[in-house]
Protein backbone atom coordinates (compact mmCIF):
# COMPACT_ATOMS: atom_id res chain seq x y z
CA UNK A 1 0.00 0.00 0.00
CA UNK A 2 1.12 3.56 -0.69
CA UNK A 3 0.49 6.38 1.72
CA UNK A 4 -0.35 9.62 -0.09
CA UNK A 5 -0.96 13.15 1.10
CA UNK A 6 -3.45 15.44 -0.58
CA UNK A 7 -1.45 18.64 -0.13
CA UNK A 8 -4.42 20.76 -1.07
CA UNK A 9 -6.23 19.43 2.02
CA UNK A 10 -3.37 19.05 4.52
CA UNK A 11 -3.35 21.87 7.07
CA UNK A 12 -0.49 20.53 9.15
CA UNK A 13 -2.57 19.39 12.14
CA UNK A 14 0.08 16.82 12.99
CA UNK A 15 -2.12 13.94 14.16
CA UNK A 16 -0.55 11.55 11.65
CA UNK A 17 2.92 12.27 13.03
CA UNK A 18 1.66 11.82 16.59
CA UNK A 19 0.22 8.42 15.68
CA UNK A 20 3.07 7.19 13.44
CA UNK A 21 6.14 8.85 14.96
CA UNK A 22 8.65 6.50 13.32
CA UNK A 23 7.12 6.83 9.85
CA UNK A 24 6.03 10.48 9.74
CA UNK A 25 7.80 13.54 11.12
CA UNK A 26 6.92 17.21 10.72
CA UNK A 27 8.86 19.90 8.89
CA UNK A 28 9.63 23.25 10.43
CA UNK A 29 6.18 24.54 9.46
CA UNK A 30 4.37 21.53 10.88
CA UNK A 31 3.60 19.69 7.64
CA UNK A 32 4.15 15.93 7.47
CA UNK A 33 7.31 14.39 6.05
CA UNK A 34 6.88 10.76 5.06
CA UNK A 35 9.81 8.43 5.58
CA UNK A 36 9.07 6.16 2.65
CA UNK A 37 5.57 5.90 1.22
CA UNK A 38 5.39 2.13 0.77
CA UNK A 39 3.76 0.83 3.91
CA UNK A 40 2.21 -2.39 5.14
CA UNK A 41 -1.53 -1.85 5.61
CA UNK A 42 -1.28 -2.39 9.36
CA UNK A 43 -3.62 -1.05 12.00
CA UNK A 44 -1.40 1.85 13.01
CA UNK A 45 -1.27 3.18 9.45
CA UNK A 46 -5.03 2.84 8.99
CA UNK A 47 -5.55 4.58 12.32
CA UNK A 48 -3.43 7.52 11.19
CA UNK A 49 -5.34 7.76 7.90
CA UNK A 50 -8.64 7.79 9.79
CA UNK A 51 -7.38 10.34 12.31
CA UNK A 52 -6.46 13.10 9.84
CA UNK A 53 -8.85 15.97 10.64
CA UNK A 54 -8.56 17.30 7.08
CA UNK A 55 -9.02 13.88 5.40
CA UNK A 56 -5.76 14.57 3.60
CA UNK A 57 -4.20 11.13 4.00
CA UNK A 58 -5.08 8.14 1.90
CA UNK A 59 -3.85 4.63 1.32
CA UNK A 60 -3.80 3.46 -2.28
CA UNK A 61 -3.11 0.06 -3.71
CA UNK A 62 0.13 0.16 -5.67
Amino acid sequence: MTLEIDWTRCDGHGLCAALLPDRISRDEWGFPVLHGTKLPPDTAVRRAVAACPALALRLTRT
Partner: peptide, 16 residues
Protein backbone atom coordinates in the same frame (compact mmCIF):
# COMPACT_ATOMS: atom_id res chain seq x y z
CA UNK B 1 -15.39 4.27 7.22
CA UNK B 2 -13.62 7.64 7.26
CA UNK B 3 -10.17 6.28 6.46
CA UNK B 4 -11.41 4.15 3.56
CA UNK B 5 -13.53 6.97 2.13
CA UNK B 6 -10.46 9.16 1.51
CA UNK B 7 -9.82 6.90 -1.48
CA UNK B 8 -12.57 8.74 -3.32
CA UNK B 9 -12.31 12.45 -4.06
CA UNK B 10 -16.06 12.94 -4.02
CA UNK B 11 -16.58 11.11 -0.72
CA UNK B 12 -13.74 13.10 0.83
CA UNK B 13 -15.27 16.38 -0.27
CA UNK B 14 -18.73 15.43 1.03
CA UNK B 15 -17.63 13.71 4.23
CA UNK B 16 -17.75 16.67 6.61
Amino acid sequence: ARGRLTGSARATAAWR
